[in-house]
Design a protein around this nucleic acid. Structure first.
Lengths: 254, 254
DNA sequence: CGGGGGGTTGATGAGTGTCAATACCTGTGG
DNA sequence: CCACAGGTATTGACACTCATCAACCCCCCG
């Protein structure tokens, strides 16, 4: 067990000392897109005060596990995280790859335990927002309330997008859609949308897209052969983003 | 255009007159599972007052359409509703089938317009909850706030379930999973879990499950041949629910 | 009686999963 | 610095699931 929870956490014993952890929300590079973006500056201190800013942890670490008692939601601060749910037999279905500025753990609210697990894809750091404290603030800060609700709603919309990905698209369309989606999200965050690292393994991609490793690999190779992308391991360069987008938008069934 | 919105609605001109529409939440059969279930009785009147109880409308009617300005969320009161999103080319991906007591329209919150459309699968009635009025109440009724948040979170969990359905399961497992899921939800609502009507067409089932009509039909026929179910048109009888459940839980990939 | 929509069943082939062999990459220890 | 091991990715051959196309049935409605 190697969870990065606030209490009883061996790798992060001194949560409030390291300088890095002093970065207030308003000074955080992700402020514009993160939970507190619409909170009045007068209320920001209160929110800031409940947030636990974790140090970076390494690839493979668990942030939380399916079945864990729900205690907090998390914002990715750096690196990337995958969330997945596993069934009785231990099989996994990846639910999402999460980049800096995105919130995770929202599925735990309803049942008081998480239905999914979260693991770091690379060296990554999160901000932990204890939920019972957040609930108190929601009552006092309407904008925060509103922003949380929007966040949840957005998560639903993303889920719908994923449904049409898995329900209606062929292998190459799925891969193209994922590449475009990641490119878009990177661009929102100020990174290059045409040249980036895929933080996850081929197995993760395949799992997320409902494909096998081999199919993912073949599609990427074909895209490369067709001069749509340049692949070198995890490094991806989009050579023909427009064409990829066309592919991604295509609806193959029926 | 035949939307059942509160304003400018031809089929429902007198929203506040029909006796049927006087059923208060606390007297509604769905009270235990619907939005107001945890609201204090003292606060219930205020919530009751903003709810618009629509008369039943007939199969095929739109409740809202993708792109509509977001103004309300809806609770299904009777009948059933499908929600779906459609892409540029007009192709649809069904996002869910919704039974009495379930809320829909939550995806519209984030962008101020709905990303999906909703249509009645049979004669169905909804309660409309104007969102700007609901927002006012959220500030005054913490339990309502909490319940809405849980609702949104539940929706996310349901989405994750659907992901594993489409991502990891074979045709027969998907069909079995859908049958079991509907059976469960009917049971929660006090109906027979082993003998029910599928309100949606085979095309809808196929679309939802990422399969073709023909495959759905074949799987149902095979299930019947194997004495797992009894099919007569839309009428389904589960003969071996345990075996169906085993199938539904099975994870085929890898 | 005819027409049309929805559902079933059959034949066939495309797309992707499966299995297997090989290459590559990364970190570890000598 | 190199060798090695273990995981990760690529590529190929084959099999199987499910989509496609087509014919037909059934039932409801005009």
């Amino acid at each position: 067990m190697s969870a990065v929870r606030s209490r009883r956490n061996p790798i992060n014993p001194a949560s409030n000392t390291a300088a890095e952890q002093r970065v207030e929300c308003r000074k955080c590079a992700l402020f514009r897109i993160c939970l507190p973006k619409n909170v009045d500056s007068k209320d920001l201190a209160a929110l800031d005060a409940i947030i636990i800013r974790h140090k970076p942890a390494s690839r493979g670490q668990f942030l939380y596990k399916s079945g864990d008692r729900f205690a907090a939601i998390y914002a990715v601060r750096s690196g990337s995280v995958k969330t997945y749910r596993s069934d009785d037999q231990g099989n996994e279905q990846i639910c999402g790859f999460h980049l800096p500025g995105e919130m995770i753990g929202l599925d735990g609210i309803v049942g008081n335990r998480s239905t999914s697990s979260a693991r770091f894809l690379d060296t990554a750091a999160v901000c932990e927002i204890p939920y019972h404290k957040l609930e108190d603030l929601l009552l006092q800060i309407p904008q925060l309330q509103q922003e949380l609700t929007r966040l949840l709603s957005r998560e639903i919309v993303v889920g719908q997008w994923q449904l049409s990905l898995l329900g209606r698209k062929k292998a190459d369309e799925r891969v193209a859609a994922l590449l475009c989606n990641i490119a878009d999200r990177l661009q929102q965050r100020g990174y290059s949308p045409s040249d980036f690292n895929l933080p996850m393994s081929r197995a993760d991609i395949g799992n997320f897209l409902g494909l096998t490793i081999e199919t993912v690999s073949r599609v990427l190779s074909r895209f490369q052969k067709e001069r749509l992308i340049q692949v070198t391991g995890k490094r991806i360069t989009l050579l023909a983003p427009a064409e990829l987008r066309r592919l991604a938008a295509h609806d193959s069934l029926h």
